[in-house]
Amino acid sequence: MASNLKVIFLFLWLLQRGGGNVDVQQKPPIQVALLKEGISIPCKVIFPYMPKYTKFSIFYYWINSLGQNIPICNKSESVPMPSGKENTTATVSFDHRILLENTSSTGTYYCKVKWNDIQKLGKGVFVLARGTGYVQTSYGWEILITLTVLLAALSITATALILWKRKVLCPRRNQINILRQKEETQPPSASPPPPPPVYDCLDLHHVDVYSSLENIANKPSLSPSDKTPKKQMTLEESSDILYENI
């Protein structure tokens, strides 16, 4: 009798140990999906290979942004037990594929597994439904326009610096040009007065000398017969007069 009780308690302990190994996992916790594209709700069931746990029911549902619990579907599963795998742990995936109709399909999707006396609930997967995917934009025109604007700004700045430098370093040239323009615009003035005579800057005795030379040059020419003595005489007289004046 005592031996029979030990066998019964051992069997119940094995059942409790086997029941404690059942679990439901859902990974990854977050998914992003496009509209009109299918998405799989992960549901991985972990259980021991025992007749009691090879048959179970799976329930799929989701909770929307308003907190409403919306069922999707449910189905019964029966996993065949391989020979020689009794009391070992099995891990089987039962993913369910759905189609997102609109962006309001965003929410958390759950998988719940129920045995006769045990039920396990997964942690859920948050699914973000998007209207459009990533569109690769072309930045060719934007880069070209940016470079053009930058080059134009640099050209204008360089021109302004050159003009400013010329204005600072060459003020005299600008003044000369202004004066030249003023002179060109003014009417022609009267002719300048004639220069003073050459003799004005000479002393009085120098003027007498030049006057004597001029008188000699203005005397009438002599005849050929009287040319030689009169010429000598004139030169002597002019020499005396020149020495006297000096």
Results as ranks from 00 to 15, higher is better:
Val7Leu: 09
Ile8Met: 09
Ile8Cys: 01
Ile8Asp: 04
Phe11Lys: 12
Trp13Tyr: 14
Arg17Asp: 14
Gly18Phe: 05
Asp23Cys: 03
Pro28Thr: 12
Pro29Glu: 10
Leu34Pro: 00
Glu37Thr: 09
Gly38His: 06
Gly38Ser: 06
Lys44Leu: 13
Val45Thr: 06
Val45Ile: 13
Phe47Asn: 02
Pro48Thr: 06
Tyr49Asp: 04
Met50Cys: 09
Tyr53Gln: 03
Lys55Trp: 04
Tyr60Trp: 11
Trp62Ile: 01
Cys73Gly: 05
Ser76Thr: 11
Ser78Tyr: 03
Pro80Glu: 08
Pro80Leu: 08
Met81Leu: 12
Val92Thr: 07
Asp95Val: 01
Thr103Asp: 15
Ser104Trp: 05
Ser104Tyr: 10
Ser105Trp: 10
Thr106Cys: 12
Thr106Phe: 04
Tyr109Ile: 06
Tyr109Trp: 03
Tyr109Glu: 08
Tyr109Phe: 08
Cys111Gly: 06
Lys114Gly: 07
Asp117Lys: 11
Lys120Gln: 15
Leu121Cys: 00
Leu121Ser: 07
Val125Gly: 14
Arg130Pro: 02
Thr132Glu: 13
Gly133Phe: 05
Gly133Leu: 10
Val135Pro: 00
Glu142Thr: 06
Ile145Trp: 07
Thr146Asn: 13
Thr157Lys: 13
Ala160Gly: 14
Lys165Cys: 04
Leu179Met: 08
Glu183Gly: 00
Gln186Val: 03
Pro187Cys: 14
Ala190Tyr: 06
Pro197Lys: 03
Tyr199Ile: 04
Leu202Phe: 09
Leu204His: 03
Leu204Met: 00
Val209Lys: 02
Ser211Asp: 07
Asn215Val: 03
Ile216Leu: 15
Ser223Gln: 07
Pro224Asn: 11
Ser225Tyr: 07
Thr228Arg: 12
Lys230Gln: 10
Asp240Thr: 02
Ile241Tyr: 04
Ile241Asn: 05
